[in-house]
Design a protein around this nucleic acid. Structure first.
Lengths: 229, 229
DNA sequence: ACAAAATTAATAGTAATACTTTTATGCAGG
DNA sequence: CCTGCATAAAAGTATTACTATTAATTTTGT
């Protein structure tokens, strides 16, 4: 079986798993096939029994890796945000113009990856679908605060803060760089969901509209002079 | 028992319930006490058995009103957005300046109600808490599209469209009035949640910061000249 | 006022889920 | 060859979501 990430390793907080799924063939199968199954069934209809059957393994073996499916979702989310963070770091690295850097970061957060092969296997698109429809469930519950204290959302928050820093660099006068970054990242997910399911309250015809919509907000709010296209 | 709404009646789509809870004492108890219980336990730990016990009734009696707890959540959500829509309509009615009207609408969507007594019983604040932490679960699932087709999110979408119209009225040039409205309404919920649980990626110190943050986005994006405070 | 109809309560039961426990099997390292 | 660990297989428990049955109560029509 192919591993999810071919060239980079995301350091997921050890508290989200019981045993590191990277450490064994079975673990890697659990992760890569859970992406396929969750995307197919949705989180509510997905369970470890079905996953076990799908990888010719056993329910209780999966429980040795993850406490429950919500922890698995937190693991997958960490992978996703980790990949985006990695891309934001290396793909904006060479860009000197801070405005162009921010737009590049927004593009990464908003659009489908163009050159998937260089970062991971094909499942990245399915993982993105999962995040758009399921990420919210990884923190909208009664144990957010303890999960957060354990560091289970560290990568997500770090990505937000990187974007917040870019915003601050462009307009140090602006009062809400962190909230704005956070709103862009969330907006990317939400607008994609609205576009797919609540078409009457959106103008977006494709993914790139979501990008232009959010970019326009950044331009206006941060008072960016846009001479470049 | 007090009824949730003392002076107005929200027309919730009949498809979300099996029997109209407004039509009986028991139904009203189900609704008002579900607000208390869901807010207390969170949606995952809430079930009809516990609710039945809490109102000295029976599990199967509740099933005569709602198919399951997600439909009940859709009912509560409709109530919430219905109350906001009603308030937006009557409280902006007398305001002539379209900019001030939009800000008033944003205030209603973002802030706690000031004069609760005139619209409903005390539970409105708990209902707001529920919407902030649970509303997302009413549509992030595999049957969104059929629920949507049945009209279960009609009131929510109508509120969004009302705000979109105000936006359009202020700046007809702007390309994404619906998406922007949608982003404001979602942003209100999301920013409140972030403020309560992910404090490191937010600047907001209280509810009103969320309002100022979103208002500032509107001012910038719609190019509103702000001479008034 | 009374019979019929509908609602609700009480109880039990079913199917599925989430998770645990136990025991067995196979394989790797010393 | 033995020990230890990872996994597999199977069964078991607790809870949940929901249904069915029957009985008691209330409402309604006449």
């Amino acid at each position: 079986m192919e591993s999810l990430l071919s060239s980079i390793k995301i350091n997921v907080n050890p508290k989200v798993y019981l045993k590191d799924p990277e450490s064994s063939e079975l673990g890697q199968n659990i992760v890569s096939n859970s992406i396929i199954l969750i995307q197919e069934l949705g989180l509510e209809d997905f369970n470890f029994k079905k996953l076990a059957k799908c990888i010719n393994s056993n329910e209780s073996s999966i429980y040795r890796y993850f406490e429950n499916k919500y922890k698995l979702l937190q693991y997958l989310s960490s992978l996703y945000w980790g990949i985006l963070e990695y891309r934001v770091v290396i793909e904006t690295n060479s860009i000197k113009d801070p405005v162009k850097r921010l737009f590049k970061a927004l593009k990464i957060v908003t659009l489908k990856p163009e050159n998937i092969s260089s970062y991971s296997s094909l499942n990245q698109l399915k993982l993105r679908d999962i995040i758009i429809s399921e990420f919210t469930k990884s923190y909208h519950n009664k144990h957010v605060d303890s999960d957060n204290d354990e560091g289970n959302f560290k990568i997500y928050k770090r990505l937000n803060l990187r974007i917040a820093e870019m915003i601050e660099g462009i307009n140090p006068e602006y009062n809400y760089p962190k909230s704005l970054a956070c709103q862009m990242v969330e907006g990317a997910l939400h607008q994609h969901f609205m576009r797919s399911h609540f078409k009457t309250i959106t103008e977006h015809k494709d993914d790139s509209d979501v990008y232009y919509f959010l970019k326009n907000i950044l331009i206006s709010v941060l008072n960016i002079k846009t001479n470049s296209k």
